[in-house]
């Protein structure tokens, strides 16, 4: 079997805030989605010739 770049063969790490707990993996996914969302709002989009029409 090929060795993985990151060893995931162990129980998940958890972060706890009082009664709330979240796995590090899930936290990374949620923070990544937020980062992608913010970047998508503010990063300039490469304009093309086809993007001129403004219809209703």
């Amino acid at each position: 079997m090929q060795l993985a770049l990151i060893n995931l063969n162990h129980p998940a790490h958890y972060i706890s805030f009082g009664p709330f707990a979240i796995s590090v993996g899930n936290l990374i996914v949620i923070l990544s989605m937020m980062a992608i969302f913010i970047l998508a709002l503010f990063l300039p989009f490469p304009h093309s010739q086809s993007g001129k029409k403004l219809k209703k």
Binding site: A40, S48, S50, G51, K53
Partner: peptide, 15 residues
């Protein structure tokens, strides 16, 4: 369609 409105030229529209 062959064209899209100008406001679609934003990364938020690709998801």
């Amino acid at each position: 369609p062959e064209e899209q409105p100008a406001y679609v030229a934003s990364w938020i529209y690709i998801f």
